[in-house]
Design a protein around this nucleic acid. Structure first.
Length: 124
DNA sequence: AAGCTGACTATGG
DNA sequence: GCCATAGCCAGCT
């Protein structure tokens, strides 16, 4: 059995767990190709507006998880790729976004409004 | 059990 | 528009 990232989240995490993180992942997986959202938007959608940081923390936990979570589509409210450092390669996040047609310059998404996907509005 | 931390945000100077 | 501060909440030590 592979080592789990924490003592709390089992390998089956994204399946039958009702943790805060699990809800985050569920939302993040809904982000369409070529669209992005922010930590705060996800937190707000989950009803815990103040725990935007936890959303980012949750992304951290997705590393090594077998379930794919498009963490690269989650940026901060300004469209800055604040989480790039947490990827295997620093440029991975930017490259992934670019490969999805998102304009990224200087670690920042241009025309964020054009790509922004708000779960509160789109995920009814 | 208590305190620290963080891939955030809002606000004020 | 940039820097400092404070609030936030859940996981981690």
């Amino acid at each position: 059995m592979k080592k789990k990232l924490s003592n709390k989240i089992p390998d089956t995490i994204l399946g039958d767990n009702s943790d805060f993180f699990e809800r985050v992942y569920k939302v993040v997986r809904q982000i369409p190709f070529g669209r992005v959202t922010s930590y705060g938007a996800i937190a707000r959608f989950l009803g815990t507006a103040g725990s935007a940081k936890m959303v980012g923390w949750a992304m951290n936990r997705t590393r090594g998880c077998k379930n794919f979570v498009p963490a690269h589509r989650v940026v901060n409210r300004l469209g800055i790729l604040t989480g790039k450092h947490h990827f295997s390669d620093e440029n991975k996040m930017e490259n992934l976004l670019k490969s999805e047609g998102v304009e990224v310059v200087n670690d920042k998404i241009i025309n964020l409004n054009k790509y922004f996907w708000d779960p509160c509005k789109e995920l009814i």
